[in-house]
Design a protein around this nucleic acid. Structure first.
Length: 423
RNA sequence: GGAGAGAUGGCGGAGUGGUCGAUCGCGGCGGUCUUGAAAACCGUUGUACUGAAAGGUACCGGGGGUUCGAAUCCCUCUCUCUCCGCCA
């Protein structure tokens, strides 16, 4: 969430930038400003009364020690009325604070200067393109047919043991998955990211920390018996490592990577979007997470983009980078770049990575801070990106690399798969 | 699953109703000494809100209660640990 300080410093700017996200923040921001004035006054009164009570209590203690019972009793009676007043004001203060917090939670992150205006995915800006478009014959097969033909992925079996959206990878299909995971992790390690193997279920506090809760509750699988959530991405457990933490400036930047299975309910999805590997309830992903000093976060973002681009280049897939417009960005992001690969047999672009800078928005909720040279604590900037999500990479690889002889494995994966071609 | 113990500052660990935001030790920071370091000694050392500042307020797992006054008493929730059982 935004900090009160950010809002107080420049409310007009925030309102103007929120409009880029299609969010009318005028009412909320003004309300927050009003409530804040109210809060300060109320707190002052509360604190003064509390100070008075503390003093009186101390003096009663002193009287008791001196054995001046009667005087003490008199003072007690005096305290009662002040206490009542203080109680009412403290309650009012609590209400105001809760109201401010509720409104703050409802205000999305402010898109940074580089974010283009726009309402839908149509308005995203293609920033960069690379890779060769494959020349497939007319009878090229979509990945779900290829998966069946070469016995790589069994979707029906997944339906049998769990349900739709839970594919079963078999034989060389499973091996290829593992090769991709290894490849991505090794590349991240080479780029200086420390590998983390996180829990796949998290508690409520972690859900709040990264912003899945309270509003995106329905997106996560919930283990009712234990009050735990299945992670929708490794971002959740990994970023929450730094919840309620004050880092030293020399610990920054923090660069973590994690492989995890990801679980998403994806309620309401249907049709061609969910065919085959296009959208799953369980999928594999390697995530990169960074905690940065504010002045370094945009350079870090560029580095992350380059890293993801490098992966796609090595895989030899046609790709492009989209700079998301305000309306297509997530609630918590200050700027997001999506990476898409072209899935040739389906004839469509598939999102395989999303790289974002959250600036202090996430850190504020997480209370992830660092101590600068001046000993003051400041909020960190948090960033994350997929590097990469597997299923759509798998889909594109199968489709784009199909030949009459079989599916050709990209060079960079061969040392992991131990086979060059799936035939 | 059964039984028990516990949750205090970066860590360890005191504190069972009144100058306790909290003894002490370790660690950290600053200094003395030293060519430098170590050792020793001295000082310092949480977070947040509020205030121009001085200061004030809150926080001893969370929430509630008793009391003039709670880290300390009561209720409740959560979590952790130990032993037994089961088990990858």
């Amino acid at each position: 969430m935004l900090t009160l300080q950010q809002i107080k410093e420049n409310p007009e700017y925030i309102i103007a930038r929120l409009a880029v996200k299609g969010f009318d923040g005028k009412e909320a921001i003004n309300k927050i400003l009003d409530l804040d004035t109210d809060r300060r006054q109320t707190q002052l009164r509360n604190d003064n009364l509390a100070a008075d009570l503390n003093k009186k209590a101390a003096s009663i203690g002193a009287l008791m020690k001196q054995g001046k019972r009667e005087e003490a009793e008199g003072a007690k009676a005096e305290v009662a009325t002040i206490k009542e007043e203080q109680k009412a004001i403290a309650a009012r203060l609590g209400e105001i604070e809760a109201e401010i917090r509720d409104i703050l939670l409802s205000v999305p992150n402010v898109p940074c200067e580089m974010v283009p205006e726009g309402k839908t995915a149509e308005d995203n800006v293609v920033e960069k393109t690379g890779g060769e478009m494959p020349n497939l014959p007319a009878d090229a097969l979509p990945h779900w047919d290829l998966a069946k033909k070469y016995n790589l992925i069994d979707f029906d079996l997944g339906v049998k043991i769990t349900g739709a959206g839970f594919p079963v990878y078999v034989g060389r299909g499973a091996r290829l998955q593992r090769a991709l995971i290894d490849f991505f992790l090794d590349e991240a390690a080479a780029a200086g990211y420390i590998e983390i193997e996180p829990p796949y279920v998290v508690n409520e506090a972690s859900g709040y920390g990264t912003g899945q809760l309270p509003d995106k509750e329905g997106q996560m699988y919930f283990v009712n018996e234990d009050g735990l959530y299945l992670i929708p991405t490794a971002e959740v457990p990994v970023t929450n490592i730094y919840r309620d933490v004050i880092l030293n400036a020399d610990q920054l930047p923090i660069k973590n990577t994690a492989y995890s299975a990801c679980f998403r309910r994806e309620a309401g999805s249907y049709g061609k979007d969910v065919r085959g590997l296009n959208r799953l309830h369980q999928f594999d992903k390697v995530e990169i997470v960074r905690i940065e000093k504010p002045e370094c976060s945009y350079a870090a973002l560029e580095e992350m983009k380059d890293h993801v681009e490098g992966l796609l280049r090595k895989l030899g897939l046609p790709w492009h980078i989209l700079r998301l417009c305000g309306g297509d960005m997530s609630f918590t992001s200050a700027i997001t770049f999506d990476f898409e690969v072209y899935s040739a047999a389906q004839g469509r672009w598939l999102e395989v990575s999303s790289v974002s800078n959250f600036e202090t928005y996430q850190a504020n909720r997480l209370k992830c801070r660092y101590r600068g040279e001046d000993k003051k604590t400041r909020l960190c900037h948090t960033l994350n990106g997929s590097a990469l999500a597997l299923p759509r990479i798998m889909a594109a690889l199968l489709e784009n690399n199909q030949t009459p002889e079989g599916i050709v494995i990209p060079e960079c994966l061969r040392k992991y798969t131990h086979f060059d071609i799936i035939d």
